[in-house]
């Protein structure tokens, strides 16, 4: 049995790898965002918080994770 290949995704415009079909909620913990106040879009589409635990990451996904910042 061979280890499953990792897939490439873009996290805030930086390439990284995750296991295939890794759930977004798990990946957030992997990346250090666990418990933080964030909002997420994947491939330019908003992903509501309620979907984090069912959203599977796939090859080539472009993931944007944002936090509050000062703005005018």
């Amino acid at each position: 049995m061979t280890e499953r290949a990792m897939i490439d995704v873009s996290l805030n415009n930086e390439r990284t790898q995750v296991a295939p079909k890794r759930l977004l909620s798990d990946a957030l913990n992997d990346w250090g965002y666990g418990g933080q106040k964030v909002a997420i879009a994947i491939n330019g589409e908003f992903v509501p918080r309620s979907r984090y635990a069912e959203q599977e990451l796939t090859q080539g996904d472009k993931i944007d994770i944002v936090k509050p910042i000062g703005g005018g």
Binding site: K37, I65, K67, P68, I69
Partner: peptide, 22 residues
């Protein structure tokens, strides 16, 4: 007050004070 959203490194917690004040 107006504010925004931006990509930030998860290890950067500088925004926490900002958010508390807001």
């Amino acid at each position: 007050v107006t504010l925004g959203l931006r990509r930030q490194n998860p290890a950067n917690r500088d925004g926490d004070t900002f958010w508390r004040h807001i």
